[in-house]
Amino acid sequence: MNIFRLFGDLSHLAAIIILLLKIWKSRSCAGISGKSQILFAIVFTTRYLDLLTSFISLYNTSMKMIYIGCSYATVYLIYAKFRATYDGNHDSFRVEFLIVPVGGLAVLINHDFSLLEILWTFSIYLESVAILPQLFMISKTGEAETITTHYLFCQGLYRALYLINWIWRFYFEGFFDMIAIVAGVVQTILYCDFFYLYVTKVLKGKKLSLPA
């Protein structure tokens, strides 16, 4: 463990908590893409099946349980409890265009052709594009609530910090996982446009609104 990975995990945890609290306290999921949240629930489910097969550390196990629990709770709030506030018309990204190619790629390019490893690989590839429905929805509505931008910033920062973690681990441990690194680079690049808007607008106290 190094500080980049630790702060990456904490940023990820912050994003998950920020979103869950935002929906719970405002009793509304307006502006939130339920599709992205379903994809994240799939990401955690397929990646953390090793909870059933191996124990790495209390930190590892507890964080996985928190991620899975919060992501399912978020999906529940969006599609059940506060479904009246769900903006289905603007959450129209065709997720099958993500799941099918990612599934195919996971079967073709992986470290080991075993079920758990293919599911892990699928989860890594899916996570890199899981935010697209959310970014697409913001481009359609032309704006995002400030709390949603903080959620997105933490979500994007987490994998950016993981990239530094992988540089650190390669240099000090000789460890690298090309699949996670390539997917992590793609994932972080997808946030660049948002990062620019976040720094130039939200951090200056303005509302994030895209030229419609």
Partner: peptide, 10 residues
């Protein structure tokens, strides 16, 4: 090596 027998990252 490339084959990561156990993924220790979240």
């Amino acid at each position: 090596g490339m084959s990561v027998d156990e993924h220790d990252e979240l």
